[in-house]
Every structure is written in structure tokens, then in C-alpha cells.
Write a protein that binds this DNA or RNA. Sequence first.
DNA 1: CACATATTTCAGCTTACTTTGAAGCTACTG
DNA 2: CAGTAGCTTCAAAGTAAGCTGAAATATGTG
Lengths: 131, 131
Amino acid sequence: MGRTAGRILGWLMICDPPHQSAAELRTNLGASSGSISTQVRLLEQLGLVERVTFSGSRASFYQLPDHVWSRSMDAELVRIVQMRALAEAGSAVIPNIRPERVTELEEVAKFFAAEWPGLLERLHQRVEVKP
Amino acid sequence: MGRTAGRILGWLMICDPPHQSAAELRTNLGASSGSISTQVRLLEQLGLVERVTFSGSRASFYQLPDHVWSRSMDAELVRIVQMRALAEAGSAVIPNIRPERVTELEEVAKFFAAEWPGLLERLHQRVEVKP
DNA sequence: CACATATTTCAGCTTACTTTGAAGCTACTG
DNA sequence: CAGTAGCTTCAAAGTAAGCTGAAATATGTG
């Protein structure tokens, strides 16, 4: 993630109101319109920003989705599963000496793939369901 | 981590013998001596490669440490704690509307800081203590 | 302890990514 | 449905990171 994307996220965490137009982002961050457009789209694809509109204004506004941080941990599971698939592909090249150089990676990936869903469930319980 | 660092790791997972000299890495990966020197040092600092020597040869050899993959998950705890510290610094700028934009990040960081040590313990049990 | 071998350093090159700003396009308001 | 505010695109410039290879430095064998 680029510099501007990070600054957009930071600003969207503290701005008032929580939704900002591209022009507001441009002004407050000192970035160009093109940069805002590109980076906001990137963040939208990553699920870290959502776009909202209001009738009466033709501008789009950008804001952080609810529970954005705990939800972003969900994406980690995708990467863990990709890692497990990669590690499993390694079974084709297991060396004779110290084969655990390859097999251990698979075990680690399997471990996290098994543990992560439960962890996420507890995280969401804790963060999204306030006591 | 750069391209060459990744290729070094990959080669060290499957090479025979498991320890390789800089010259061997250079030959097998088609990289320059400078690149090998720099990237091997980077990997050493990250704890992903260790350097060994043998009397009778003046060359250094590089190899993967034991349990390198499960141990590399330990480093994640450091990053989680750094994230918690950053998130706690955010308490100085909590906005009035939708304050959870900032506070949720802190809760997520705290959650992982609390959970990670136990997770690591079970990982190491599972991977390093073969049944 | 001389000296050949191995390693590190570093300036310049290459490559990949980011930003800018203006032109073109979209779509909403009135 | 015309006009225009706002968004996207894109080529060019800027920036950052990695690689190379030769020169400088370090190492430890014999």
C-alpha cells in the first residue's frame, strides 16, 4: 500500500464528518486528484474504504466501513490458505536430507489454517458485540 | 523482502547439502556476488538464515536454522506489540463521531497481543515436538 | 605471517512503482 | 435533457528499491 493510501486511511479515522469527498481528501492531504482517485479505488478493492453518495450532491464520499479493522483480519485467512496451498505444492520437492525444511512450512500453514477461523470468531465477538 | 532474498530461501529449502557457500548461491541462482552478500545479510538479520563455517575452508556457508518457519511466527508478536503501541497512541486523537474508528484498532491489537503467545506455544508443541 | 581466497562496499544502472495535472468522460441536478 | 461538477484516465516525470561488478577490505590457511 502506497504512501497516499496510508494517509487517506489515517485521515478517514479522525476526520469530521467521517465521510469525505475526493476534493476534501485532496485539500486535507495535499495530494493530486489523480492520486486520490487511484488510491481510493485501491482501498475500496481491499475493503478498507467504502463509497457513499447523497442525493443533492453529485460527489462521492469515502468513509471507513464499520468494524474495518477486525474485518481486515478476515483477509489474513485467505493468505494463510494460499500459503498452505503453496506449502503443499512443496511436497513434490522434499529433499532427502533435512526434509523438514519443506515439510515444516506445510505444518505451520496447516496449523494456522485450522486455528484462524476460531480466532476470528472470538475477535469479532469481543470487538463487535460490546458487553 | 526482495526477489533475490526469496530465491535464496527457496534454494536453501531444497539444496543438497543444506549449507551453501556464497559462490554456490551465486552459481545456482545466477545472481551477482554483491547481491548475494547483501541479501544473505538481510536474511541473517531476520533470523531466516544462519551462517556456519568449517575449518579447512575459509568460506562461509549459509543454511536455514532449525524450525525456521515456526520460529518466524514469533517475530509476528513483535509487530503486534508495535501495532498495539501505535493504536494506543491514537487515544490522543479519538474523534467525537464514530470514535470506534480509532478505538477498534486498539482493541484488535490488544486481542492479538493477548492471544498470540498461547497460539505460538501450541504451534511449537505441534511442530517441534514430533509425536 | 604472507598471500590467495572470500566477502563487503558502493557508484551507477535498471526496473518498478507513485504522483501529477490536464484532457476526456460520466452522470446528476435543476 | 442541457449544462456542468466531479471522476477517471493516462503519459510524463519523479522516487524508491534492487542489482551489478569492480575495487577495497577482511579472513584464516598453510
